[in-house]
Amino acid sequence: MKNLVLNGVSRVFSGEDEREVEALFNLDIKFSAGEFVSIIGPTGCGKTTLLRLISGLEPLTSGQILIDDKLVKGLNRACTLVFQQFSLFPWFSVLGNVTFALEMKGIDKSRQHQEASALLKLVGLEGAAKARPYELSGGMQQRVAIARALAYDPEILLMDEPFGALDEKTRHKLQDVLLDIWQEKRKTILFVTHNIDEAVYLADRIVVMAAEPGRVVKDIPITLPRPRNRLSEEFTELHIRIRNLIEIPG
């Protein structure tokens, strides 16, 4: 189990007319092992950039990312990233997408099939192993993407609006699937979303961000017992509180 610490992390993009955009400015956040954290904020607050920095896909402009006090350089091997959509490899079958990650992890060929099947079962897709990604609905594709990310067996699972392109019913279903997986595997999950309801339903803790420059405005622990009731008073209260934080520029 690993703790993830961000120390004074900034990311500056230089725009076309030499104008510099501070996508993220001086972030200090600590994520504890096994925590489920939702990151929420308006468009342009740098929440996607934050995940890309943590994963190592993009370099920091300044600051440090530490995992258990060890500095992360280049790609972060402790993480993998689940994108919003269309990230499956269409030339592989569903099973092939999952075994790809197992292979990268160096899992023995003879065990790949069995492990991939187990992961597909975990996300409720045991019958679709031979299907091609384009034959699946958007929700099923995201299940495969999650299974593939789990195959890499990361300490930290980064998710960038993974259910953002799904209809509400499918989204609710997948939220429950994700919570079950989280409870079984005890991974740290950083879950970026723009959906307040989703953030409150899922997380132990919500990091609220604001734009220009991208920064953290509030860090709210969610102590509601699970399974959470979206219609309860406490849930609604939190929802309104977070909405006010996002809408009123801090």
Partner: peptide, 14 residues
């Protein structure tokens, strides 16, 4: 080639 595919592969340790 979609950069999303390449980035996905990279974050999976390829």
């Amino acid at each position: 080639v979609r950069s999303l595919w390449i980035e996905t592969a990279r974050t999976l340790g390829a």
